[in-house]
Design a protein around this nucleic acid. Structure first.
Lengths: 208, 208
DNA sequence: CCTACCGATCGGTAGG
DNA sequence: CCTACCGATCGGTAGG
């Protein structure tokens, strides 16, 4: 009987998982505004109504929390940008990836815009595992665009003399720049300017 | 006599100006790596071998220091990117602005790459005078590119149906993305990829 | 420009 | 998961 009431009162594993997820989701949102470094355990504890040591119950150190936050941001990015685009193939997939990225920014999915654009700028000039993890995620994204572009080339949807790396560099530059500009100037016109630029670049590369 | 020795021992106005400039130059460099917010008065004092209150002798508050740091970064940018490009006009000026920007990044003028690219990413999602100052500098840069592009159009160096705003958006996206990629991946190939992209975009816009 | 100090907050730990 | 605490560092000030 005592045993029983203790058991019902005790926090279950599922509770712990939910708290951990709450902390990480909040961390992703906070980090797009304050930066991954500006994110403090104290502020995060306050924002989630968990005590500081409650946060440390889930993460060994600030760096451990930061790495888990990047992983969580990756999951979000895959869910809202990548997965919906995988329904299409080749040129259509390439177009969808760019459009879903722009829409992910435009919808203000995260308050400070794209998590990885912010993290890449913040950590670019530093060293350590956090920077490497962000760089690796960035390479994965470029790889995803490149694979779609290559398939479009194989499908003869793009001109046979297309420079795939150059095309992907340009597309990525456009969507990332749209993110920064949209957040800095709070101006949706920048998103439509990016849409036009994407269209122009892809039209120029399309096979006749 | 006592008067005299006191006078020679006393710090002159020029000494103060030199210290202030040393602080600001160090702040610009540090801010490209640590961020304008990550920049602390203590670290800055250490890096310049001035005491913390020595820093406060020149700036009323951290925000005051940050605003002065942005102004100092602007001066540097004008010196190394803008001024050399103003010798040319029209299309040549537009090309020079892009090339000088890429070279300013490639030469590692600042350890964390372009100051304003870093500041725009860091402050984009926040509010206040610092963000407004950075946004205003960003608009000036876009305005500079736009003016050169417009003149190129007037000079009939660009096709008469050229979308100046779209062209400038694309050129800026390319050079800023080159900055982030170069710093994050430490790979000079990204700069040459950007040079090719600039060339491709400008070639497509050139009048026959 | 310095030394010496302020309260607040940082990342992190002890003990439960 | 909590309260209560640690030394270090933060932005900033007093007094010289």
């Amino acid at each position: 009987m005592t045993e029983r009431s203790v058991r019902t009162a005790r926090r279950t594993r599922a509770d712990g998982d939910r708290t951990r997820q709450l902390i990480l989701d909040t961390a992703v949102r906070l980090a797009t505004v304050e930066g991954l470094d500006g994110l403090s355990i104290g502020k995060l504890a306050n924002a989630t109504a968990v005590s500081k040591s409650g946060v440390y119950a889930h993460f060994d150190s600030k760096q451990d929390l930061q790495l888990a936050t990047v992983d969580n941001a990756r999951k979000l990015f895959v869910d809202v940008v990548v997965v919906p685009s995988l329904r299409a193939e080749g040129l259509e997939r390439l177009t969808a990836l760019c459009e879903m990225f722009l829409s992910y920014v435009e919808q203000r999915t995260l308050p400070g815009g794209c998590f990885f654009a912010a993290a890449a700028s913040e950590l670019g000039g530093r060293a350590g595992p956090l920077r490497e993890l962000v760089a690796s995620n960035q390479r994965d994204w470029i790889g995803l665009l490149s694979a779609a572009a290559s398939q479009a080339l194989t499908n003869q949807q793009l001109r046979s003399d297309t420079d795939v790396e150059g095309l992907v560099f340009e597309l990525n530059a456009i969507v990332v720049s749209a993110n920064t500009g949209f957040i800095l100037h709070d101006d949706p016109v920048i998103i439509s300017r990016a849409r036009s630029a994407i269209e122009r670049v892809l039209d120029a590369a399309k096979s006749a």
